[in-house]
Design a protein around this nucleic acid. Structure first.
Lengths: 234, 234
DNA sequence: CGTATGGTTGAGCCTCCTCAAGCGCTGTGG
DNA sequence: CCACAGCGCTTGAGGAGGCTCAACCATACG
């Protein structure tokens, strides 16, 4: 589904996305090449191994980036939220399969056009560099977690991340979050199995640290401090 | 140990390091701020949590980047070889502890000077962007490995990487490599324990896929194809 | 009402970790 | 020159955490 380009000026993620580093005039020229696309949950926008065609900004919704082994084992190597940049610039072949977790609104650019934007707008390039460095930083954090934390710690850390992601108070207050994916995807993200994820959720519930309806995606964190202690964050 | 700046023009990594994107005149100005440092094995150049002071290029030798949990668990999140860039630009606090694996020659810049270089030399910034994207790519590959491969597969993949890193023939010929670190560091890199690493090395030897002297760092890969099959690479 | 889908829970097993002992080399001091 | 301590690596025994396999439950949907 491709719609006519929405005006960048009143874009929802005008300030948080890459384009935030542009002034109104520059934005106007960008809006001629950006195309909005709505993706239903599950829709794939890039297949690992295929030609790498598109770069985009997430306007609303969420995406997963999946890496996989030849024999089919999979790992979600990143989750993207509104304002995040999607794509692999300067690479002719996509390394990851990217697909929508929830209904998602994207602002898409053909990859090569996007690269020209970088040539022409140093501030965008600088912003992308900073974001890439920060993605690298979180990728390394996740390497530490995947290699050295046990199931309980990974789940706790995941919930803490979601909590911070939703712009929540770091205080000790109970807080409601929504897990934007199913148990299977949580497992793919944390390097566990569905069953282990389910058991650890249940255990956190039994411990009175969280509550949720059976099978539900909405979840109340009753004791954020306990969760933080388990996840070894300060 | 800080020496007078070596002339960039005859730098060993002139073509492979970031500075490769500069012409001779630009290089001349760079050489005024770059300082060469020799590090003995084990020397730390950046402590996680401390002020982030320095960016550098590896001229010779090798470094490890270590992330750790508050309780002391550690993970090597990257190994750096000649030509590689070291540092965390735009971040006031270092997230990683970086130290020398072997005797290492670095070309160092104060972090803020390095950031000015990026301001003034778009081609350097572009090169850094491409490298950061490629580091991100390998970090994601490693997330997949740490989350989804078993000990044998990780060891095999590690040896394959070393093989490729030493610019070796991809053919099926036997080849000698040198593991630039001890068993403990291999374990820290692969998310395993020393004992598991040692056992898997022994098992690969028993299977006739590799040979090495007891406790040795030099290692002959007798059957690279078998190794590649175990590591699931093509 | 039956099926499909996603989540939960249980039983058993396997891999890797933990703890411990032993080996071989290096360097040092008597 | 030899004894001995120290270090890094190897190997073994035992245990635990997470995976596999399987059954069961709840909700959504035709």
């Amino acid at each position: 589904m491709t719609h006519a380009p929405a005006r960048c000026l009143d874009c929802l993620v005008r300030d948080t996305a890459l384009c935030g580093s542009l002034n109104d005039m520059e934005l106007a020229s960008l809006s001629t090449i950006g195309k909005r696309r709505m993706l239903p949950p599950g829709q794939v926008i890039s297949w690992a191994g295929d030609d790498n065609m598109v770069c985009a900004n997430v306007v609303s919704g969420s995406l997963k980036m999946v890496a996989s082994l030849p024999d089919g084992r999979e790992q979600i190597v990143g989750i993207l939220f509104p304002g995040d940049f999607v794509g692999e610039p300067f690479s002719s072949e996509a390394a990851l399969t990217v697909s929508a977790l929830t209904e998602t609104d994207l602002c898409c650019f053909p990859r090569e056009s996007f690269e020209h934007v970088l040539d022409d707008h140093p501030r965008v390039e600088r912003t992308l560099l900073r974001r890439t460095l920060s993605s690298l930083h979180s990728a390394r954090d996740r390497m530490l977690g995947l290699a050295r934390m046990d199931a309980r710690e990974r789940i706790a850390g995941f919930l803490i991340d979601l909590m911070h992601g939703t712009g929540a108070r770091p205080a000790g207050q109970p807080i409601r979050i929504t897990v934007p994916m199913g148990r299977g995807e949580v497992a793919d993200y944390l390097g566990l199995t569905i069953e282990t994820v389910s058991r650890q959720f249940s255990r956190l519930k039994a411990d009175g640290i969280i509550t949720f309806d059976k099978g539900g995606r909405d979840l109340d964190i009753l004791l954020p401090d306990h969760l933080a202690a388990i996840a070894q964050v300060d």
